[in-house]
């Protein structure tokens, strides 16, 4: 799709095509299920979640299968988005100004492209943890087939799996907070696909310039 097609007739910019939105929600749905059932096994204080979701046996049976769906969605995301996610020089400047970003002083932030450095971290965090979760999850899935003299694999898996899961939960919480509460308009982009010109200009000026060919408005 070339850039002029991305400007929609009602004056908005297309950010996510249908297949991108669908992939996102397959990943999100399977992830939330994995997180909830995983937390149930993680702590006795959360075991009630398994009861709500059909019982411990059912949760144990379905968790790894949901993991495979999640892995599929993550791989698709990698093929769709990784090209835009490699760090650039601007990302370094973005991290240096992270204080402004936290205090909502967005006009003092260096211009971000289609993805800012934080979003790139989210992406790579999920890709890397996704791989770790898959590898350790496969061992947790079939511990009875790991031979006794390779038992260190099981000892590693029980540490790696929850650690990687906890890292993604941290990323996940920030992701929800940013896209639902902090940046109004972001949630719509992953539901309906488009964002307003103002949204693009405010949060992704580099991307705005690339799509519209016009300079993003001068900073106040």
């Amino acid at each position: 799709m070339n850039h002029s097609d991305q400007i929609l007739s009602h004056g908005r910019i297309l950010r996510y095509e249908f297949h991108e939105r669908l992939t996102h929600w397959i990943a999100a749905g399977s992830y939330i299920y994995l997180m909830l059932t995983g937390l149930a096994f993680y702590s006795p204080w959360c075991f009630w979640i398994a009861a709500l979701l059909g019982g411990g046996q059912v949760s144990r049976m379905l968790h790894p299968w949901a993991g495979l769906i999640f892995t599929g969605a993550i791989l698709k995301m990698f093929s769709m988005w990784s090209a835009q996610m490699y760090p650039t020089g601007a990302d370094k400047a973005w991290w240096d100004s992270i204080g402004h970003y936290i205090r909502n002083e967005d006009d003092q932030m260096p211009a971000a492209g289609r993805y800012n450095a934080g979003q790139k971290l989210l992406f790579w965090g999920f890709i890397i943890c996704g791989v770790l979760l898959l590898l350790s999850g496969a061992i947790l899935w079939f511990p009875e087939y790991v031979p006794w003299n390779l038992r260190f694999l099981r000892y590693l898996a029980v540490l790696i799996h929850p650690s990687a899961a906890l890292l993604t939960i941290g990323l996940f919480l920030i992701h929800i907070y940013m896209s639902v509460f902090a940046e109004r308009g972001a949630f719509g982009s992953i539901i309906r696909g488009d964002v307003s010109l103002a949204f693009a200009k405010r949060y992704h000026p580099g991307w705005y310039e690339e799509i519209t060919g016009q300079p993003a408005s001068p900073k106040k």
Binding site: I102, N104, Y177, E183, A198, R202, S217
Partner: peptide, 22 residues
């Protein structure tokens, strides 16, 4: 953080433009 700083923008600004119009 939300209590202290709130959202980065009030709503989608095409509907209620703040500052400069695109």
């Amino acid at each position: 953080h939300y209590l202290r700083f709130g959202p980065k923008s009030r709503e989608d600004e095409d509907i209620h433009p703040r500052g400069e119009n695109p």
